[in-house]
Amino acid sequence: MTENFTLRIFTEPQQGATYDDLLRVAKHAEATGFDAFFRSDHYLKMGEVTGEPGPTDAWVTLAGLARETTRLRLGTLMTAATFRLPGPLAIAVAQVDQMSGGRVEFGIGSGWYQEEHTAYGIPFPSLGERFDRYAEQLEIITGLWATPPGETFRFDGEHYQLSESPALPKPVQQPRPPVLIGGMGKKRTPALAARFADEFNLPFVDVDTAAAQFERVDAACEAIGRDPGEIVRSAALVLCVGRDEKEIARRAEAIGREVDEVRLNGLAGSPAEAVDKIGTWRERTGISRLYLQVLDLSDLDHLDLVADEVARQL
């Protein structure tokens, strides 16, 4: 895969996966040349699946993978700000960065899935308060990482207060692990991205919608005097590629999708179709990374096919 454009594997283990399932996919992704292994941060299944054997914690998983892989970038799309206090979260991410030798990327969002909060006793404030807390978390986490050794960090916000924090441990990556922000909010999301994001990600939207949102992020950067080119653009699409129509249909059925629908909304069809669609995304939106949502974690041949017949053509 070229340095100009990279393909990353993105998994949704709340739909039903053990750590060993994720480890198998991550090791295979590394062996076949993919750039990164990312996972969602959810505690409850979605849709018509059992979700068994149950959820796994994103940062516990990534800590394990940090010690069992050597090259893959590791991260979340997206950690929910509602799940953790910002101080302990900064510690956990910095520790996993240390455990991986500096391979962590930190995706964080405001949290949106009310049912998983209800199911596991996690407070779920109003949308406005969730976003306020999210903004404070970004300030705190990046502030802790940026505090010079030997100095302390202080923060006095509406929702979080920190006093005389030693701001330890420090991540390996300096000045910090890359921060990923995403979403379709038209005002506050681009403004936060302009302030904090190293990468802006748009999951499961069409190319026109993505192009318009990237333009909003660019405008927000320009409004505060930041070069928009400093922010990596990326997208996420469900993966369903096959060598022939029979294989495409089998893979669509395995993830509960219709072939025509997933062809329209995902990265689906033949390898040639996938390459063409990636080309359209690159031309229209300027993305340099694409996260491939792999929903059937047992189908490692799917990764082989993409590595051999899609990635090599990019």
Rank of each mutant, 00 (worst) to 15 (best):
E3Q: 15
N4E: 13
F5Q: 11
T6V: 14
R8C: 14
R8F: 07
E12M: 13
Q14W: 05
G16T: 13
T18D: 08
D21A: 06
V25C: 06
A26C: 05
A31E: 10
A36L: 00
S40I: 02
S40V: 10
Y43L: 15
L44V: 11
T50V: 04
G51Q: 01
E52L: 14
T56F: 06
T56M: 06
A58K: 00
T61L: 08
A63S: 15
T69H: 08
T69L: 01
T70H: 12
R71L: 11
R71C: 08
L72F: 06
T76Q: 05
L77H: 01
L77C: 05
M78D: 06
F83H: 15
P88G: 01
P88W: 04
V96H: 07
M99R: 05
G101K: 06
E105I: 10
I108Q: 01
G109A: 11
Y113H: 12
E116H: 08
I122A: 11
F124H: 06
G128W: 01
F131R: 13
F131M: 14
R133I: 00
R133K: 06
Y134F: 15
A135R: 03
A135C: 07
E136G: 06
E136S: 08
A146I: 04
T147L: 10
P149R: 09
P149K: 02
G150D: 00
E151P: 01
R154T: 15
R154V: 12
G157R: 02
Q161K: 13
L162D: 02
A167H: 01
Q174C: 04
R176F: 06
R176T: 07
R176A: 10
P178W: 00
P178E: 13
L180C: 04
L180F: 05
L180Q: 07
M184Y: 07
K186M: 09
K186Y: 03
A191K: 12
L192V: 02
A193T: 03
R195D: 10
R195V: 10
F196I: 04
F200N: 05
D206S: 10
D206L: 08
D208K: 13
T209E: 14
A211P: 03
A211D: 09
A212E: 12
E215V: 14
R216E: 12
A220S: 02
C221W: 01
E222S: 10
R233T: 08
S234W: 04
V241S: 03
R243A: 11
E245I: 09
K246R: 10
A249I: 08
R250W: 05
R250G: 08
R251Y: 02
E258Y: 08
E261H: 15
S270D: 07
S270W: 01
E273G: 09
K277Q: 11
I278Y: 03
I278F: 03
T280D: 13
W281D: 08
W281T: 12
R282P: 04
L290F: 13
Q293H: 13
V294Y: 02
L297W: 09
D299T: 06
D299C: 07
D301W: 08
H302A: 13
V306Q: 01
A307K: 00
A311S: 14
R312D: 11
R312F: 07
L314W: 06
